[in-house]
């Protein structure tokens, strides 16, 4: 059975570990990491590039601003205290400390289904990782070479390349190379 690669950022260990254990027990979810702060998650997410979904404590929302690493990963808020509705609006969905395993899984499925719909991610800015991939594409690397260089799977490279094409509107390698140069992501000498 396909297992959804999920991570959790929750300062209260008992909540984070509890949700991790409920999701893992379902057999549908693989918990890639469960950490207590955004800074820790930043380090983890660099080495776990295949995160499909994040459960994040709603109280950490302000710390996520301006973090391109999290741009393309749908996030579900974990609400354990009173939080302003404005804060919750930046998440794809919300679960609470009272949610059952069934509710957690239903929210997870709904969020991933919505994320798979075209146009879900309205940002047309390339994420940091997509820029890394684009530069290597422009330098003539194959998907396999890009995967090895960035320490990610070829499947993830393909996914990044799809996002790059969607966001730039450019499909050919020659066109993407011009795009990278004109946007100063790479110099002529680096090509």
């Amino acid at each position: 059975m396909r297992r959804y690669r999920t991570a959790i950022i929750e300062p209260a260990s008992v909540i984070g570990e509890g949700i991790a254990s409920m999701l893992s027990a379902s057999g549908e979810v693989e918990i890639l990491f469960c950490c207590r702060s955004v800074a820790e998650a930043k380090a983890y997410i660099r080495s776990h590039d295949e995160v499909e979904l994040l459960f994040v404590a709603a109280s950490l929302a302000p710390q996520l601003n301006g973090m391109p690493l999290f741009d393309n990963v749908p996030m579900i808020a974990i609400q354990s205290t009173l939080v302003e509705s404005e804060v919750l609006r930046r998440f794809a969905a919300v679960v609470t400390t009272f949610s059952t395993t069934e509710e957690l899984l239903r929210t997870l499925h709904e969020t991933l289904d919505r994320a798979a719909e075209p146009g879900y991610n309205e940002s047309h800015e390339l994420s940091e990782r997509e820029r890394d991939v684009l530069v290597l594409v422009a330098r003539g690397y194959t998907n396999k070479e890009i995967a090895s260089e960035l320490n990610i799977s070829p499947h993830t490279v393909i996914s990044h390349r799809k996002n790059i094409v969607h966001k730039t509107g450019i499909r050919s390698v020659a066109g993407l190379t011009v795009y990278a140069v004109l946007n100063k992501l790479i110099t002529n000498e680096q090509l």
Binding site: T168, G169, I170, S172
Partner: peptide
């Protein structure tokens, strides 16, 4: 068709 669209995208987004 893809290549023609690429030219349009570059003109719209990068010039």
């Amino acid at each position: 068709d893809d290549r023609t669209n690429d030219i349009a995208s570059l003109i719209i987004k990068c010039l």
